Computed example of a mutant assay.
Amino acid sequence: MISYRHHIVSLVAVFLALAAGIALGGGPLSDLGRDDQPASASTTPDRTVEQHASYGDEFATASAAALYAGGLKDQSVSIVTMPGADGATVNALGAQVEAAGGTVGGTYDVQRTLTDVSEKSLVDTLGSQLGTQLGSGAVSADASTYVRIGQLVGLAVARSELPSSDATSVRESLAGAELLTSPDGALRAPVVVLVLGRHTDPAILSGVVAGLAEKATGLVVAGTTASAAAAGDLGVLRGDAAADHAATVDGVETPLGQVTAVLAAIRSLTVQGGAFGAAGADGAVPLP
């Protein structure tokens, strides 16, 4: 008997193919059954491509709740945005977290000071000071500048054994140095979704991701379709060892990418890593 999961997998494969505009008409069977009648206005190539492109998003939006199956029930998610992350995308991700039964514990914005290579001395000094204040074991003694700051951001936003008073102190220190915003009433969460924005120096992004992954139960790094290109931030990160313990998702500017990111967040509660999306090496959608 074909299970419900196999039905879902088949449907996902179909809508992804349609979303990518893959049709027999463009392949080796394109001449079969073709007549000389001109295409009608309603089936022009541009219109067909447009319909294919929107179908995947429509399917994802309609099927999201069934795919989530309440996977984030009683769970919270922290959203961390890199400089230049699109606000509408961040809000849409938050809505999808709620559709999966979860809550957004807080949305934290990484400030340009943290990613500015000319401010490395500030980032290093503050990271060293906070590491000393928190005591042995809070951050790695031999961590590099940006891995350490990533660990500190993780302690500030991700649920851990660190006392809540210490986590609050870290958030306030990072906010005071204009490295990370600290929203009122924020709650630490087991899962962190890091939303990429404008280009970030690869070494800085790699360090922050590696540090965050060490402190969060699950980490999802979400980038746009363009960022997944070989020279894009997500594309470069996927070739870095720092991404081994973080799930990466491309196409997050689309509803399909947003649903995929939340499915990856659900998966990250028990399984870390994986590259998902149209350019993902581990499949289009992370299904249980």
Rank of each mutant, 00 (worst) to 15 (best):
Gly102Tyr: 02
Thr103Glu: 02
His199Lys: 07
Gly87Glu: 12
Ala143Asp: 10
His7Lys: 11
Ala229Arg: 15
Leu114Trp: 14
Asp201Arg: 14
Thr44Lys: 08
Gly154Ile: 04
Ala60Gly: 03
Leu219Gln: 05
Ser140Lys: 14
Ala246Arg: 06
Gly235Ser: 13
Ala216Leu: 10
Gly251Asp: 05
Gln37Cys: 06
Glu214Lys: 15
Glu214Met: 14
Gln258Gly: 01
Ser76Met: 06
Leu219Thr: 05
Ser160Trp: 01
Leu122Ser: 12
Gly280Ser: 11
Pro45Leu: 06
Gly84Trp: 06
Asp233Ala: 15
Gln272Arg: 09
Val90Leu: 10
Ala177Leu: 03
Leu130Gln: 05
Ala186Arg: 03
Pro83Asp: 11
Asp74Ser: 13
Gly21Gln: 15
Thr125Arg: 15
Gly94Met: 15
Gln75Glu: 15
His199Thr: 08
Ala241Cys: 01
Ala167Lys: 01
Val192Lys: 01
Arg188Ile: 06
Thr248Arg: 02
Ser42Gly: 05
Val191Met: 06
Leu67Trp: 04
Val139Tyr: 09
Arg112Ser: 14
Glu172Val: 07
Gly26Trp: 12
Leu256Met: 08
Ala167Val: 03
Ala64Tyr: 14
Asp124His: 15
Leu234Thr: 10
Glu58Trp: 04
Ala23Gly: 07
Glu178Asp: 14
Ala229Met: 14
Tyr55Pro: 00
Gly154Trp: 04
Ala247Glu: 01
Ile266Arg: 01
Val12Phe: 09
Gly127Met: 13
Ile22Asn: 13
Gln37Asn: 10
Val147Tyr: 11
Ala141Arg: 12
His199Trp: 04
Gly70Asp: 11
Ser78Met: 10
Arg112Cys: 05
Ser173Ala: 15
Arg47Pro: 00
Asp109Tyr: 04
Val9Cys: 11
Ser173Met: 05
Arg112Pro: 03
Thr225Ser: 13
Ala177Ser: 08
Leu263Thr: 02
Thr44Leu: 12
Leu196Gly: 12
Gly274Pro: 02
Ala138Asp: 04
Ala39Met: 10
Gly283Tyr: 14
Val139Asp: 08
Leu212Gln: 14
Thr248Ala: 06
Pro190Ser: 11
Ser206Asp: 14
Gly239Val: 05
Ala64Asn: 13
Ser54Cys: 00
Ala85Gln: 03
Ala281Val: 15
Gly232Ser: 13
Arg171Thr: 02
Asp250Val: 10
Leu155Lys: 09
Val221Glu: 04
Ser182Val: 07
Leu237Ile: 12
Asp116Tyr: 08
Val170Pro: 03
